[in-house]
Write a protein that binds this DNA or RNA. Structure first.
Length: 309
DNA sequence: CCCGGAACCTGAAGGC
DNA sequence: TGCCTTCAGGTTCCGG
């Protein structure tokens, strides 16, 4: 897709466009080339050029249609479009639980949300049966990703950074790992896998991890994510790659989605529980819940004795 | 600011 | 077979 121009945009489900309006989305996208493809956390980022005037695609169009595509509406002249448009823009996509980006799908898949047609004949289709996935078109990426925590695979995500981010947190470590503003990009199954690898109970208070456990967790996150990327993701349910292939990371999972199966470490059955409304898999024997270190004998800040009915 | 729970959605799988 | 319940690769809003 790199270097190719978007010549036509079709929106089948207005709900999939978070920003701006559907009309503006189509209008602003048409005529721009895809300059780079990057990622921040779980957000996929298409950096776009300024609108290009080209003899080969004189009728660049933007189209907002629902159900069956209608005949496209031409967007003025390209000169006008360029004059009224932002110079560069970013198309951002989030797949949420069930979204997919499909390149040149063989048959028209169900649940189509947005179709981008390129000047080389390629078609990029954004699909999502569950209607959670979203797209944005923004000048500044930070308007969407600005609050995200550090990238867990970047060099500046050190054990010390993790310790700083967990300090003082009273929520379960599982919940904190899923908080994208603490660390960006860890999903439910990778949180479970990381906690198992570090032998930490999902309900352990995040701020109570010892320095040693924090270092182990840091290493575990790195290992789990690197392995999963090497396996092209996990396709337990919906996820498929742009060519329709499935990932294989779930075959290597130790606990995630393996309730009742033997723990690979101790052979006792893996349990499932719910933490913050998310299914959570762990080994109760290998991942022990420990009381807070140091604070066990401390008195509470106030003692209300017999004062209330 | 931090925390927990509900809401947003719909298809697929499992139990009866 | 059919109905009902549960679950799901996530984020955001609301109330405490």
């Amino acid at each position: 897709m790199l270097g190719h121009c978007i010549v036509r945009v079709t929106v089948f489900d207005a709900k999939a466009i978070r920003q701006p309006t559907v009309e503006e989305f189509c209008h602003q996208l048409a005529g721009r080339a895809i300059v780079s493809l990057t990622r921040r956390g779980k957000y996929l980022i298409f950096s776009l050029s300024a609108p290009r005037a080209s003899r080969s695609n004189p009728t660049v169009t933007g189209e907002a249609s629902f159900g069956q595509p209608r005949s496209p509406a031409t967007v003025g002249t390209l000169a006008e479009a360029a004059a009224s448009s932002k110079s560069t823009l970013n198309l951002i996509a989030h797949l949420k639980l069930s979204g997919a980006l499909l390149l040149n799908a063989r048959e028209p898949p169900k649940y189509s949300k947005v179709l981008l047609q390129l000047d080389n004949g390629s078609q990029l289709l954004f699909t999502d049966p569950r209607r959670f996935a979203r797209m944005w078109l923004v000048e500044d990426i930070r308007t969407v990703t600005g609050k995200l925590g550090p990238e867990p695979l970047s060099a500046d995500f050190t054990p010390q950074v993790l310790a700083d981010r967990l300090r003082g947190r009273k929520a379960p470590i599982k919940a904190v790992l899923l908080d994208q503003n603490v660390i960006a990009g860890i999903g439910n199954m990778y949180a479970d896998e990381s906690l198992f690898a570090a032998r930490i109970h999902p309900l352990q208070k995040a701020g109570d991890l010892s320095p040693g456990k924090t270092r182990k967790l840091h290493a575990a996150i790195h290992e789990v994510l690197t392995a999963a990327i090497g396996d092209k993701g996990a396709s337990i349910r919906n996820y498929i790659r742009p060519g329709g292939e499935r990932g294989t990371a779930h075959f290597g999972f130790s606990v995630a989605h393996r309730g009742g199966e033997p723990c690979p470490n101790c052979r006792r059955p893996i349990q499932r529980m719910v933490v913050r409304n998310r299914g959570t898999y762990f080994c109760p024997h290998c991942q022990r819940l420990r009381p807070a270190t140091g604070s066990y004998g401390e008195p509470p800040p106030f003692a209300l004795v017999g004062a209330m009915p």
